[in-house]
Design a protein around this nucleic acid. Structure first.
Length: 482
RNA sequence: GGCCCUAUGGUCAAGUGGUUAAGACAUCGCCCUUUCACGGCGGUAACCCGAGUUCGAACCUCGGUAGGGUCACCA
């Protein structure tokens, strides 16, 4: 490791940031940090037509909440700026001209009509190198005459361009299959193909980490490095993340959007942890890892070559693991907004509720439905009282509720211990099993078949007054049913 | 269509010539239990197909098949 590692993440601000884009940034970050290197953010905003307002801010925000901190970027000058591509527009033309002088590029005056006529039966066209061998005089004359032109890459003939990809191994492409692509457009601005190479070189990028969509064009870029006499960077291409077997995650359809997940109540750490696992497996097969642990464990060997399908179910599970690992206070803090949203102005003890939720939700937004019974108590289906295993039926339930009311009305110690003891004794006195009373009481208190906690927990959350009110309501309901 | 790449349970994935082919999610069953959840235990379930190399192939080679990527004055 002679030179210091420098990696970059170069998103184009054309919309939301999905999990796939983020993962590319994450790997570039992990790789840099693993090797004590520098991680750079560069905004590739040259495509003004696809540009989306606010998208740049979204990139900053997303990286910050994800904990992916860049060492150099638009707002963090490291001496290699500007870091926003549109601010670099002045530099490409001179490099393109330099490349022409070095024999790696040439002027082309072909117009769009001519290019169109080159299409084959599949609608694919390959430039026929028409202007590749124009004489020096002719080029100068046409340039002087003000003819519009582009500068094209002069791909060497009869060579095989190959390189060793860090995840895919040897990639080789015959130069006959590489087009003399446009480097500098007729408006004087560079195409991505060119800007990308120039920027990466000027910014001293040592390891280019990006998606596989560039895998087969990398040999072409390498030819540009060669023509300039620049050192080629190392490459790490990452397989795509799919939404199903045949479709990639797409920005256009808002798939797997990072910020949406945050809104839904996923923890940023859990999302980042999960996406790190999509396409990479640490040597010891760990799954739950902090950013620091991922940095330490990150290695190129564990990166997979095949695409993977994004599985929200597994991300939910991981998120649940993070939630359960929190202290009660930490959990309360993140859960509070969701609890408040669920109960509105109601008086319930939020801390109690949050405590009940911690082992019961994988994603914070699940809190709403789990707490719905609090504000939705009313007439309910009495069949809920029938429970074979519990040995509860209408009659048992009726008696149980009655017993519970009698006992609890006199109870002053409204705590877990107090209620438990009280109900237990009352059940015994009535010749019933404690479980039968508990079960009936829980249903009577909530009117719900499933609740986040048992009878005692529900009674505590509801408080004595509300509990007795609900029990009496249920008692009437049961009697009316006769 | 040309070129590049990929292929282990439903999903994520270990595995690099000899394994009872890990583990996790999901799923199913049991235990715990005042419902649900948590926790614990267990089950079902995979090497795309065909040749070859080899004493031996999920692993190596070739050919199919399937899927992805790319072939723009987009990035």
């Amino acid at each position: 490791m002679t030179e210091k590692v420098r990696t970059r993440f170069a998103p184009s601000p054309t919309g939301f940031m999905h999990i796939g884009n983020l993962r590319t940034g994450l790997y570039a970050y992990l790789f840099a940090k693993k090797h004590g290197g520098t991680f750079i953010l560069r905004i590739e905003d040259t495509d003004q037509e696809r540009k989306v307002d606010g998208a740049v801010e979204m990139v900053y925000r997303t990286l910050a909440t994800a904990g992916i901190n860049y060492d150099e970027g638009p707002d963090k000058d490291g001496g290699y700026g500007p870091y926003i591509q549109t601010e670099r527009m002045g530099i490409y033309k001179q490099y393109a001209e330099e490349l022409v002088k070095k024999g790696g590029a040439y002027y082309c005056f072909c117009d769009k009509e001519r290019l169109e006529s080159l299409r084959d039966e599949n609608g694919v066209h390959t430039y026929d190198k028409h202007c590749r061998n124009l004489s020096e005089e002719e080029v100068q004359r046409r340039l002087a005459a003000g003819e519009p032109y582009v500068i094209r890459q002069k791909v060497p003939e009869g060579v095989v361009s190959e390189y060793e990809d860090m995840v895919f191994g040897k990639i080789s492409v015959d130069s006959a299959d590489i087009e003399d692509g446009i480097l500098l457009k007729s408006d004087g601005l560079p195409t991505y193909n060119f800007a990308n190479v120039v920027d990466d070189h000027l910014m001293g990028i040592t390891h280019v980490i990006r998606g596989t969509e560039y895998l087969s064009s990398t040999p072409k870029y390498n030819l540009i490095y060669d023509a300039f006499g620049w050192e080629r960077p190392k490459y790490m291409h990452l397989p795509p993340i799919m939404k199903d077997a045949t479709r990639k995650l797409s920005k256009r359809f808002g798939d797997a959007n990072f910020e949406d997940f945050i809104l839904k109540g996923y923890l940023p750490e859990a999302i980042v942890n999960y996406i790190a696992l999509l396409g990479w497996c640490p040597k010891d097969n760990r799954e739950k890892m902090s950013m620091q642990e991922m940095i330490e464990a990150f290695d190129t060997d564990g990166i997979s070559k095949s695409s993977s399908i994004f599985d929200e179910q597994k991300m939910r599970w991981l998120n649940g693991e993070y939630l359960k690992a929190m202290s009660a206070d930490e959990f309360f803090e993140v859960a509070l907004p969701f609890v408040e949203k669920a109960i509105g102005d109601a008086k319930w003890d939020k801390r109690e509720l949050a405590a009940l939720m911690q082992t019961r939700v994988d994603v914070l937004s699940d809190i709403g439905e789990k707490l719905a019974f609090l504000n939705e108590f009313g007439e309910y289906d009495l069949n809920m009282y029938i429970h074979q295993k519990m040995k509860v039926d209408f009659n048992v339930a009726k008696q149980a509720v009655k017993v519970a009311i009698c006992a609890l009305e006199a109870l002053s110690d409204w705590t877990e211990e107090g209620i438990k003891e009280c109900v237990r004794q009352a059940a015994e006195g009535a010749g019933m099993k404690a479980g039968q009373v508990m079960f009936s009481m829980r249903v009577a208190l909530t009117g719900a078949p499933v609740t986040p906690g048992g009878a005692i927990e529900m009674a505590i959350v509801l408080g004595k007054e509300e509990s007795l009110q609900r029990l009496k309501f249920s008692q009437e309901l049961l009697e009316k049913a006769e």
